[in-house]
Nucleic acid binder design. Structure first.
Lengths: 243, 243
DNA sequence: GCGCTTTGTTACAAAATTGAAACAAAGTTT
DNA sequence: AAACTTTGTTTCAATTTTGTAACAAAGCGC
């Protein structure tokens, strides 16, 4: 799955190649520009998720690009600077940059910060996901099912426990709290577990299968948990039943 | 002016006092906690905008709080660490933290980063009304079609699924998000797939054909997807219908 | 109108994805 | 320590999705 599009703006073309390769290996699409003019053109023609902005460019000050990008796009802006100057950091952050990194930095850190800013921006778009502290302790859905978040358990219409394991409960909770939104396996992993996600991991799939079995949900004609092929899984519900 | 509520979690109470005073002078309301237990209680009882999280706490690992906070609240999480460890940075950012600062840091930088993450959150929440490049989750067009980006699916006016494959969905999404702009096959390829584009590749054409079939669109008199000969394809729409 | 290029259609093949089952490993309870 | 529960790994099958190739149709320039 494509993680998003990153525009990298830097006149150091060797660094561009290194950054570009690394981020593409991470699943991003990378576009490069080495001056202000090209950067603005690229920002005009391509939807962007993040911008890596070096401040020293041959045809102008990179810093002046911050407000221009803000007017053009809601992409996250990560300033990449050759010096660790607190005042410069603060000015950029105040001007609208989302993050500021000082060269030299590790590629892994760059990637993690890109992911963090994109994640935060995307979290604002999750219209039906609300703070879990604002959600009720008891959520009803389907044929009389009741998810009791205080008890970490699911009950049927006869008030019998479904005997969910903690893992199964967390997974169902994560799905319910994002009703009618497909959640990737990676996202579900991050919401419910600790540790590193491996793209070939099937554990979430197995857990979904076990959950479905307890819910009596048939994946071929699902009423509760729908597979979104190539994406992940989605909890199906009316607005009302999960509100 | 009240800028929001910050929970500062650290067992160094001198630092708590310094941070608290500084941020309150900046207009934030500051709540403090010096251990995991108190932190969780405070997070439960008070709506928060940002959390400053020290990783070394007397009754547990601060890092384990990251997923717990994520499940409880939409507050931004800024990890504050006594060491500059790249792996630790990356793990925290991957786990859900929004930022990571290394002690000692300047208060001005802390303030600027708090402001940046809150701004980022607010810009995400305001989503659909601020910038023309903003991308709504549900887009209506044509004869009652509704593209639901949360569900990765298209529905007709009777609310029936068009059963788009993920590939078809992405292609339509890319077109819709650039309404009335002809996109080359290469561009569509880059927007929707990974790997290298081959100029003789016909895959996008096939996919467009499949999409048209599901939409009931006739290429000879297209209402939705228009072929731009020698260029590529274009989604036809009023501004309103895709805004 | 003709020739050439580009795009559309179709049938079949190849590749990808997900569900199921069995067994193993890890964790928890008694 | 043994028994039980939970979770992970692996293999295979079924189904879906995507790609390929060939031919047809449409569009364009001369």
């Amino acid at each position: 799955m494509q993680k998003g599009t990153v525009l990298s703006i830097d006149d150091d073309e060797n660094l561009q190649v290194v950054i570009g390769q690394f981020l593409e290996d991470e699943g991003y699409r990378v576009i490069t520009a080495s001056n202000v003019k090209a950067a603005l053109e690229k920002a005009d023609s391509t939807p962007l998720d993040a911008i890596l902005l070096d401040l020293i460019l041959p045809d102008g000050e990179g810093m002046s690009l911050i407000p221009q990008f803000q007017n053009k796009t809601n992409a996250a802006i990560i300033v990449v600077s050759g010096k660790s100057d607190t005042t410069e950091k603060i000015v950029c952050l105040e001007m609208g940059a989302d993050d500021y990194m000082t060269k030299p930095f590790e590629m892994r850190e760059l990637s993690a910060r890109i992911k963090a800013v994109i994640r935060r921006m995307d979290s604002g778009n999750e219209g039906e996901q609300v703070k879990s502290s604002q959600k009720p302790d008891k959520i009803e859905f389907g044929d009389g099912w009741r998810l009791d978040r205080a008890q970490y358990q699911l009950f049927n219409s006869a008030n019998e426990s479904a005997d969910l394991t903690t893992g199964e409960f967390k997974l169902l909770e994560a799905l319910v709290l994002s009703v009618n939104r497909a959640l990737s396996r990676e996202h579900l992993f991050e919401l419910t577990r600790e540790g590193e996600y491996d793209v070939y991991d099937r554990a979430i799939d197995i857990q979904i299968a076990r959950l479905r079995k307890k819910l009596g949900d048939d994946p071929k004609s699902p009423k509760i948990i729908k597979t979104v092929r190539g994406v992940g899984y989605m909890f199906c519900g009316d607005q009302d039943s999960a509100a």
